[in-house]
Amino acid sequence: MSTLHTVNKSPFDRGSLESALAHALPGDAVLLIEDAVVGARSAAARIAEVLKAAMPACSLYVLGPDLSARGIPTTDVIDGMTVVDYAGFVDLVTGHDKTQAWL
């Protein structure tokens, strides 16, 4: 049983990313969408550390169209995070037993 966790709020504004990571189990995936993608930049040291700490256990993804819309090039994204499009989002949903939205 693995879970896809979706997070849509900026980690600079809300605690939903950190709460999601605190409840994600090994083998789960976490996908950043909407405003949460601002947390995927490697230059933002504190949040980048939080994400990197989760990485050995969980796979981390970020929605590319949301990055582009916010002017964040994929080259700015934390190493080890995977950029997906909406089709990739669908594959993540079907590839895990369930989806939990951290609204």
């Binding site: 049983m1 879970t3 605190a22 409840h23 189990l25 369930k98 939990q100 939205a101």
Partner: peptide, 18 residues
């Protein structure tokens, strides 16, 4: 505790959050 909460979440079929 948080670890138990994570297990409870993991054991579900459907998670509804609002």
């Amino acid at each position: 505790d948080r670890a138990r909460m994570a297990e409870i979440m993991a054991a579900q079929d459907v998670i509804l959050s609002f």
